[in-house]
């Protein structure tokens, strides 16, 4: 083949991966938009300017923490407290990133760093369950496109919420509150059907999270639920290693 033809094939393979990434990111977009708009509205009411609330979405990119931050700002909480609470709430991403980066071990650090910065509960779970792309050529473009789709929806939605105010009718935005949970379920069920033991891991994590959330902050409860629930994978996932 001529070098030119190779370049064209590479380009179309890359484009294909980008398209697949956007498609995989679409459910996240559906879930993020109403929440991001709600965040924008709430942050405005908390006294943040449009620039500040959008900047927070650009720099922090973590839904629950931003809602909490806006709330604490409205209550006049001090900076140190807000930052510590954010750390606790977002520490789960450390565990998730360790899992995701371990899967993407073979890619270069210059891809790993930006991809890891785009990890949220949603981009992590969707990316992780699309694990075959990690081994395909241009797999990084798939994950990059997926994460960017989510990121743009989040940042764009926040800005819209700040500028337009409550554009989504109350009833609809409340109903859309189920979207991300439904997405998590839609990701989990096919894995459970394939390998029943997966259900054991998930249910254990649910129970631990529930029990611990009764007497500690939600942030630590999710971290411990994920780590301890995942630890039973050491024993039950034995056969899956060479997948």
């Amino acid at each position: 083949m001529e070098p030119n033809a190779v370049a064209v094939t590479n380009q179309s393979a890359r484009l294909m991966m980008i398209k697949r990434g956007i498609a995989a990111g679409f459910p996240i977009m559906l879930g993020y938009l109403p929440i991001a708009i709600t965040y924008g509205v709430l942050a405005r009411q908390s006294g943040l300017t449009n620039l500040e609330l959008t900047l927070m979405s650009i720099l922090v990119f973590a839904g629950a923490a931003q809602f909490m931050g806006a709330n604490m700002i409205a209550l006049g909480t001090g900076m140190v407290e807000i930052v510590i609470a954010t750390f606790v709430l977002n520490f789960r991403h450390f565990v998730m990133s360790l899992s995701f980066m371990n899967r993407l071990r073979d890619i270069s650090l210059k891809w790993k760093v930006p991809l890891s910065l785009g990890l949220t509960d949603e981009t992590f779970t969707v990316s992780s369950l699309h694990n075959k792309e990690a081994k395909e050529p241009y797999g990084t473009w798939f994950y990059g496109a997926l994460i960017l789709t989510a990121y743009i929806s989040w940042v764009g939605g926040s800005f819209l919420g700040g500028v337009l105010g409550d554009v989504i009718p109350d009833r609809l935005s409340q109903s859309m509150g189920i979207a991300l949970y439904a997405m998590f379920i839609g990701l989990l069920i096919p894995s459970v059907k394939k390998e029943t033991k997966v259900a054991l891991i998930a249910i254990l994590a649910m129970l631990i999270n529930f029990l611990f959330s009764l007497f500690m902050s939600d942030g630590w409860a999710i971290v411990l639920g994920t780590i301890i629930g995942g630890s039973c994978g050491i024993f039950v996932l034995k056969g899956e290693e060479e997948q």
Binding site: M96, Q174, L188, L204, A205, F210, I234, L237
Partner: peptide, 25 residues
């Protein structure tokens, strides 16, 4: 440790779904 890390997505899904899903309303 690899097996542990490979189980993290499923555990995270579990912990993210419940009990959070009860706060939709």
């Amino acid at each position: 440790v690899d097996r542990w890390l490979n189980a993290i997505p499923y555990a995270a899904l579990g912990a993210l779904i419940f009990p959070g899903i009860m706060t939709v309303k």
